[in-house]
C-alpha cells in the first residue's frame, strides 16, 4: 500500500510535520517494501490554498493514506472525497510512524 507521511525533512528519520498543507516534505512510501521517495512540497509557501495543492500532490502520487500532525478543513474535505484515508495527530519520526502503521497501531 502506498502511504504518504508529511515530514519536516526528506528521509525516514525526519520528524512528522505538525501541519499537512505547509509540510516541507512528503514521503511517499510503499508500506510493504519500505521503498520511498521524498517530494518537496512546493505549496508550502503558497499564499492561500496550500492544503488543496498539497492534497493534489498526494492524490497525483496515488497514495491511499496520509499520516500527519494536523489537516486543515479544505484538505480534509478533498482528501476524503478522493478516498484517501487521513490519520492525524501523529508525531515522532516518519520511521516510527511507519512501524506503528504496519502493526495497525495508527488509526
Amino acid at each position: 500500500m502506498k502511504i504518504c507521511i508529511a515530514t519536516t525533512g526528506p528521509d525516514l528519520g525526519s520528524q512528522i510535520s505538525p501541519v499537512f498543507g505547509r509540510a516541507p516534505y512528503f514521503l511517499i512510501i510503499d508500506s510493504e517494501t519500505e521503498e520511498f521517495k521524498s517530494i518537496e512540497n512546493k505549496s508550502a509557501q503558497a499564499f492561500r490554498g496550500a492544503g488543496i495543492a498539497a492534497a493534489q500532490t498526494v492524490a497525483n502520487e496515488k497514495a491511499e493514506v496520509v499520516i500527519t500532525g494536523m489537516v486543515g478543513p479544505n484538505a480534509q474535505m478533498v482528501l476524503e472525497q478522493s478516498g484517501i484515508k487521513v490519520i492525524s495527530g501523529v508525531s515522532g519520526t516518519a520511521k516510527e510512524a511507519l512501524e506503528k502503521f504496519k502493526k495497525g497501531e495508527l488509526k
Binding site: 492561500r48 490554498g49 496550500a50 488543496i52 495543492a53 492524490a59 496515488k62
Partner: peptide
C-alpha cells in the same frame, strides 16, 4: 493559481 480546483486523477 488560487489552488481552488482539486482533482483526483480520473475523477
Amino acid at each position: 493559481r488560487s489552488n481552488a480546483i482539486f482533482q483526483t486523477p480520473g475523477k
